[in-house]
Design a protein around this nucleic acid. Structure first.
Length: 495
RNA sequence: GCCCACGUAGCUCAGUGGUGGAGCACUUCCUUGGUAAGGAAGAGGUCAUCGGUUCAAUCCCGAUCGUGGGCUCCA
C-alpha cells in the first residue's frame, strides 16, 4: 500500500502484539483506535487549526513530515468553548500586551532573544526584583553577585564546557601587548561558579552551615533560533537563583524550606501548581551513581515528608543532579515551568568544597541549586498573560492617574499628584486638552488600577473621585488622605 | 537547528512589473467638554538587508537577518 511509516511501526512491535485496522468508506488505517464509525458524528464540531512540520517519531535525526492539526469535540458547544479559550489566550499574549503597554521590545538590530526593557517594563521588573530581595532576606539568604564572565578553565572544571558548551558564548582577547593567544573567557550560563568561589574564600565550619547565597543572576544561553518566543524563551535572562550549601543531614530541612517558599510566593500570585521529579539523564551527566542515588533519595524524602504529590520524569535531570520542577497553572489553566530545586553532590566535589565538622575533620557539603520564579523575563511574560496586563496594585508601573475635566482643575490636580508622589505612590496626571471620556478610555486601556477624576466638585470640596479599573466601578469622593489609606491597605501583603 | 508561512508608516493591515494607500497614533489649530474615542488640517515609508532577472523590481528568483505556527530542546 506504500505506507512505509506504518510498516516501520509494525516491524518494531513485538511479534505477539495485536494489530488493529479501522475502515471508513474506502479508507483503511492501522491504528490502536478507536475510530469514529462515521464522520457525520462530528456534525460541525471539528475545526482544522494549523499545518506544521514534525519529526518522524519525534527525533530530529529523522525525516520531517507535514502534520495537519485539527481539533474535535463531542458537540458544537464544546468546540466553541475551546475556540473561545484560544481567542482569549490570543488577547492576553504577552508579546501583544508588552507592546501595547509599552513594557519591552525585542528588536532585530539588537539581536534575537535579547529583551530591551522600556521604562514601564523596567519599573515592573525592578518592583518584582525588590520584592524578591526582601523575601530572601526574610528567609535567611545572603545577597551575592558574581561577574558576567569567568575564565574558560573554570567552566572546564565544572563540566559546563564538556556538557553545555554549545549553549555558551565565549570570548577571547589578546594579551596586553597585543600579541599571543590571550585568555579565553566563558560568559556565564549559570550562576553557581561564583557562589562556590565565595564559599571557598574562607575555611568553613559546620557552625556556618547552611549558607544560602542568593543572586539575581543574569545569564546568557545560546538557544536554538527556532525556540525563541517573546519573554518566555530568550537568550539573556535573569534568574532568582540561590545556592544552598549545607551538611547532608540538613538537606531535607532545607528542601522543605524551599518548598514552603515556593508555596508562599505562588499563593501571592494566585497560581496553583504541581510537581515533577526528574532523574539522571542517560547521556551527558557527571558524578557517581551512588551520589545520584543519594541526591534523588533526598528529594523524594523531602517531598514525601511534606505529603506532596509528584510525578516522575525519568532522565530529565540537570547534568549535575536530579531536580524537582514546579509547574504552575495560570488563569487560563495553562501550565508553565518556573521553580526548580536541584540537588548536587558533584560540583562540591569538583570544586573541593569542605567544612570542618564537630570532629575537627574536613567534610564534604551538599549544594542545592534553586530558583523560585525561574527567569524574571519568563515570569513576567507569564504574569502579563495571567493578569491580562492588569497588574495588581503593588506591581502596576502606574498605580494612579489623575484626570482633569478641564484646565481649570490643573492646579489642584497637580497638588494631588505631588502629595501622592511624595509618599511613594506611582502617579501621573493627565492634563491634556481632551474630554474626560477620552482620558478615562486611555487610562482604562493602559490598565491603571485607580483613576482620580478632578472637576469643579472635587476642587470645591478638596476631594478626589476614584474610579476603579475593575468593571469601571467608582467610589464616593474622598479626601486624599483617605484615598491613601485605601491604597496602603491594599499594598500591605507584599511589603 | 529543522518544516511551512510571513516581513509595506510608530501600531494594525490593504495594494501593484512602470509617481505607494487606509485606520489608529503623532504635530498644529478649533473646541472647555463629568466617567471608554469632539472636529479640521498637516507631517510621516530606500516597501527587512544584500545580490540576481528585466528597458524598468516593493512586486519575480536566490541568499542573509528577523518574526509566526509547530518539531526538537529548555529557566
Amino acid at each position: 500500500m506504500g505506507e512505509k511509516y506504518k510498516v516501520e511501526l509494525i516491524e518494531d512491535l513485538p511479534a505477539d502484539e495485536k494489530l488493529s485496522l479501522y475502515q471508513s468508506g474506502e479508507f483503511v488505517d492501522l491504528c490502536r483506535g478507536p475510530h469514529l464509525p462515521n464522520a457525520s458524528y462530528l456534525k460541525g464540531s471539528f475545526k482544522l487549526l494549523s499545518v506544521a512540520g514534525a519529526y518522524w517519531r519525534g527525533s530530529e535525526k529523522n525525516r520531517m513530515l507535514q502534520r495537519i492539526y485539527g481539533t474535535a469535540f463531542a458537540d458544537k458547544a464544546a468546540l466553541t468553548a475551546h475556540l473561545n479559550l484560544l481567542e482569549e489566550a490570543k488577547k492576553r499574549d504577552h508579546r501583544k500586551l508588552g507592546r501595547e503597554l509599552d513594557l519591552f521590545s525585542i528588536q532585530d538590530e539588537a539581536g534575537a532573544g535579547f529583551v530591551i526593557w522600556h521604562p514601564k517594563g523596567a519599573l515592573l521588573r525592578t518592583l518584582l526584583e525588590d520584592f524578591e530581595r526582601r523575601q530572601h532576606l526574610k528567609r535567611g539568604y545572603d545577597i551575592v553577585m558574581g561577574p558576567q564572565m569567568l575564565k574558560a578553565d573554570l567552566w572546564k572544571r565544572s563540566g559546563h564546557f564538556e556538557n553545555y558548551r554549545e549553549n555558551m558564548y565565549f570570548t577571547r582577547i589578546k594579551d596586553d601587548d597585543g600579541t599571543g593567544e590571550g585568555q579565553e573567557y566563558g560568559i556565564k550560563p549559570m550562576n553557581c561558579l561564583a557562589h562556590m568561589l565565595i564559599y571557598n574564600s574562607q575555611l568553613r565550619s559546620y557552625r556556618d552551615l547552611p549558607l544560602r547565597y542568593f543572586e539575581l543572576g543574569t545569564v546568557h544561553r545560546h538557544e536554538a533560533s527556532g525556540v525563541l518566543h517573546g519573554l518566555l524563551r530568550v537568550r539573556c535572562f535573569t534568574q532568582d537563583d540561590a545556592h544552598i550549601i549545607c551538611m547532608p543531614e540538613q538537606l531535607q530541612d532545607e528542601i522543605t524550606r524551599i518548598l514552603e517558599f515556593v508555596a508562599d510566593i505562588m499563593r501571592l500570585f494566585g497560581f496553583s501548581y504541581s510537581m515533577e521529579l526528574s532523574t539522571r539523564p542517560e547521556e551527558k551527566s557527571i558524578g557517581s551513581d551512588a551520589d545520584w542515588e543519594r541526591a534523588t533519595a533526598a528529594l523524594i524524602q523531602a517531598l514525601e515528608a511534606n505529603n506532596l504529590d509528584y510525578e516522575i520524569n525519568a532522565g530529565d535531570g540537570a547534568f549535575y543532579g536530579p531536580k524537582i520542577d514546579v509547574k504552575l497553572k495560570d488563569a487560563l489553566g495553562r501550565e508553565w515551568q518556573c521553580a526548580t530545586i536541584q540537588c548536587d553532590f558533584t560540583l562540591p566535589e569538583r570544586f573541593d568544597l569542605t567544612y570542618i565538622g564537630a570532629d575537627g575533620e574536613k567534610h564534604r557539603p551538599v549544594m542545592l541549586h534553586r530558583v523560585i520564579l525561574g527567569s524574571i523575563e519568563r515570569f513576567i511574560g507569564i504574569l502579563i498573560e495571567h493578569y491580562a496586563g492588569a497588574f495588581p496594585l503593588w506591581l502596576a508601573p502606574e498605580q494612579v492617574r489623575v484626570l482633569t475635566v478641564t484646565e481649570a482643575h490643573d492646579e489642584y490636580a497637580q497638588k494631588v499628584r505631588d502629595e501622592l508622589q511624595a509618599v511613594g505612590i506611582r502617579v501621573k496626571a493627565d492634563l491634556r486638552n481632551e474630554k474626560l471620556g477620552r482620558k478615562i478610555r486611555e487610562a482604562q486601556l493602559d490598565k491603571i488600577p485607580y483613576m482620580l477624576v478632578i472637576g469643579d466638585q472635587e476642587v470645591a470640596s478638596a476631594t478626589v473621585a476614584p474610579r476603579l479599573r475593575k468593571q469601571g466601578e467608582t467610589l464616593d469622593a474622598m479626601s486624599v488622605a483617605r484615598f491613601l489609606d485605601h491604597l496602603q491597605n491594599e499594598l500591605k501583603e507584599t511589603e
